[in-house]
Amino acid sequence: MSLELPTTVPLQAYLALAAILFCTGVWGLINSRNAVRVLMSIELMLNAVNINLMAFSSYLDGQLIRGQVFAIFVITVAAAEAAVGLAILLSLYRNRETVDMERFNLLRW
């Protein structure tokens, strides 16, 4: 049943989708002016990585599925990172009253 899987959707299709998602995330990371959106772009990049890992896990490592375990770790860490990111954002917002990346210029880039 699950043997049919590789014959229908090739591995490369998943990799291409991950590449699209990753590049979209990179573009958002560079261009977003709202700090929350930058965090969202990072989540997109992490999801791209997860798609890669899951696809490899299913197509190349079907028995040991290490990729699935890796993906679970990525999800865990991403959640921690998001929580920390939003806490930092909140404390910055209290100090500066803005989330505009272009105005975070107390420290010169």
């Binding site: 049943m1 699950s2 197509y59």
Partner: peptide
């Protein structure tokens, strides 16, 4: 050249 097809998925 990815090493496809790998072992059968365990589902």
């Amino acid at each position: 050249p990815w090493a496809t097809p790998g072992p059968e998925p365990i589902g």
